[in-house]
């Protein structure tokens, strides 16, 4: 579903992604783990066609970026730590606006269905600025799944949420995954991703340095897997075996 080959991204002299290779099969839920500055958000922004790579190949659902960006965007739902919602519009108006942008047929039914899914149907006529952070994030997921995308990208969706809001968000995330969508999620919260993802990839210094499937590891081993991956990557980089940009 997602194929990335030798991806390089630079911001001026700074190289953020250094020849990154990444592959996700249909229906997989991949948690992309990594320290701050590893390049997780930059990588997700390239997959979302919000940023242009300097080099490399990106293919999503059979379409290439950046040449077939509109076709990719039609198949993509994105949730970031920002809600991407208008505070002065109601939940219903926000979804209706995005529905128009995506050209969704039978919008009325779809909006009701999505609001039911994220548990915000009773608040559909309320302004988004009156919502709590957790409610805004659930509505953001509703916005992202409105056009029924095949691939979902989540960029640290738990940021700024309290425990209850995180649990509610996880319920929605599980429902999204259960519908057979391919999901890539970046996170710092290892315990939470251990419960959600079917595969764990570690991104460090612009490259995927380790990858493991859920069935190959106990959920309580995720922290040691993550630390080992980062230590190994650091040792390789010190020894000069890392890929030079």
């Amino acid at each position: 579903m997602i194929t990335v080959k030798k991806l390089v991204k630079r911001f001026g002299p700074k190289v953020v992604l250094r020849g990154l290779d990444f592959q996700v099969d249909s229906g997989e839920f991949v948690a992309l783990l990594g320290p701050n500055g590893a390049g997780k958000t930059t990588f997700l922004r390239i997959l979302a066609s919000l940023s242009r790579p300097a080099m490399g190949e990106v293919q999503i659902a059979g379409f290439h970026l950046p040449n077939q960006a509109a076709a990719v965007r039609r198949r993509l739902g994105v949730v970031s730590h920002m809600p991407l919602l208008y505070g002065d519009l109601t939940a219903d108006e926000n979804l209706r606006f995005y529905g128009r942008m995506y050209g969704i047929p039978e919008m009325e039914n779809r909006i009701s269905e999505v609001l039911e899914m994220v548990g915000l149907a009773p608040r559909r006529r309320d302004l988004v600025r009156t919502f709590s952070r957790g409610m805004q994030q659930r509505l953001a997921i509703g916005r992202a799944v409105l056009h029924d995308p095949e691939v979902m990208l989540f960029d640290e969706p738990h940021t700024g949420l309290d425990q209850d809001a995180c649990e509610m968000l996880d319920t929605v995330l599980r429902e999204v995954a259960a519908r057979g969508r391919t999901v890539v999620m970046t996170s710092h919260d290892l315990a939470r991703t251990a419960d959600l993802a079917s595969r764990f990839d570690v991104l460090s210094k612009g490259k995927i340095v380790a990858s493991v499937k859920r069935e190959q590891m106990n959920p309580d081993q995720i922290l040691s897997f993550y630390k080992n991956a980062l230590e190994q990557a650091s040792t390789i980089a010190k020894n000069g075996a890392g890929v030079k940009p």
């Binding site: 979302a48 066609s49 919000l50 509109a70 076709a71 965007r73 039609r74 993509l76 994105v78 970031s80 920002m82 809600p83 991407l84 919602l85 208008y86 505070g87 995005y98 942008m101 995506y102 050209g103 916005r143």
Partner: peptide, 18 residues
Amino acid sequence: AVEKDRGCLDGLLLAPVD
């Protein structure tokens, strides 16, 4: 600025339109 502050510009850029 309204579009940028809450990340809504990204929301617009993600839409499958020209």
